[in-house]
Design a protein around this nucleic acid. Structure first.
Lengths: 206, 206
DNA sequence: CCGCATCCCCAAAGATACTG
DNA sequence: CAGTATCTTTGGGGATGCGG
């Protein structure tokens, strides 16, 4: 935001850095790992190449993103988050938790971005996960949660295996409904995970 | 945001609701309590009356803000947050925590908004405060923290009294430096509070 | 191809004036 | 007091171009 809010306030200051349109979505993408310019353009439909370039320059300028040139074999350059950028993770988490409350369940034909399941586990479960290993198979995605760490793919001998459609997974997480969810193994452990990650119930008006 | 991001993602969805310029600052103001139109315009320098009106309409439209007409004696109307709006508090908190890391200390002549101290206590300390009562006097503001609740003004017989300039208060909180801070009472309790509320140290790059 | 810079156009923000 | 109306300016969306 070239224009400043002109207030001494940490929130206003934060929004001056990442409050512009697309900024936080770029951060969201980069939280998944380093990405090339074209990867970002592809993951952010309708962003427009000039805006993407401008945002990356801004984010780089204020130390949230760094540009790195990959070693010779593949002479590509990638963008990645600095530690300051990674520190936005709690912001993204709370934004996602809040946004989820009014996000409808995914349609059965909804196009989910590749890697979404790992991202969801990382955002919602990883910070509060009890010890144990969870294997999730949702739609055509597969990801695992092992001792508070989300990972793509599958893990050996998990404590519990969860299988569901995206919609069923949504209902399980958001409304604690088990219809269409297949559980194998330690169901009670899964219940504890869901409990810990529960989307905040309505905050009472102060 | 009239324009949609067209992604099935809770963060994108959240940003469609509150991602526009000024939206979150309006929420920040309303987190302090119900406000009249003019109060908001005054608290948000340079917002421009048309933009304020538009944002309020948007926020009302998606259930974050409600307009209420005050009972006859004073026929004013006020805006206030719905429970869904209040649920943005954690988002604001994380944004503020993150923003604070690159916000410089306030200058001695910095104009702070009235009530800022109570807001700071509420945002940073209230959610993690240990039991006990704290009295803060910073600059010309006075606020207290009693059993995890922030309140303006002063409290009887607090466990600890903290007195400082805004800059000294900043350094105390952000850098754990005690220069220029006067403490009376249970200093160890204050240290525990600061510990609990500590601005996240650098998240390690994943 | 990948990584942008440029150009054009329209939508949204800023500023100011004015009204129920 | 609580906005609407109007005008100007800025910034985003979309297409295209162009050097490495």
């Amino acid at each position: 935001m070239a224009k400043h809010y002109e207030q001494y306030c940490p929130v206003a200051h934060a929004l001056e850095l990442v409050g512009e349109r697309w900024s936080l979505l770029i951060v969201r993408e980069l939280l998944k790992g380093p990405r090339r310019y074209t990867d970002l353009a592809e993951a952010l439909p309708r962003i427009g190449t000039n805006v993407l370039a401008a945002r990356l320059k801004d984010l780089e300028g204020c130390g949230i993103v760094a540009k790195r040139r990959l070693p010779p074999p593949t002479p590509a350059q990638v963008y990645e988050l600095t530690p300051y950028g990674v520190a936005l993770k709690p912001v993204m988490r709370e934004l996602a938790r809040w946004g989820l409350r009014s996000l409808p369940a995914p349609g059965d034909d909804e196009a989910l971005a590749p890697g979404w399941l790992r991202g969801a586990l990382d955002t919602f479960f990883a910070p509060v996960a009890p010890d144990g290993s969870f294997q999730f198979r949702v739609g055509d995605e597969e990801a695992a949660l092992v001792d508070g760490e989300a990972a793509a793919g599958s893990v050996d001998d998990p404590d519990v295996i969860v299988e569901a459609t995206p919609a069923a997974f949504y209902y399980l997480f958001v409304e604690r409904r088990w219809d269409g969810v297949e559980v194998e193994g330690d169901r009670e452990l899964l219940e504890r995970l869901l409990e810990a990650a529960a989307p905040a119930d309505d905050a009472v008006l102060a």
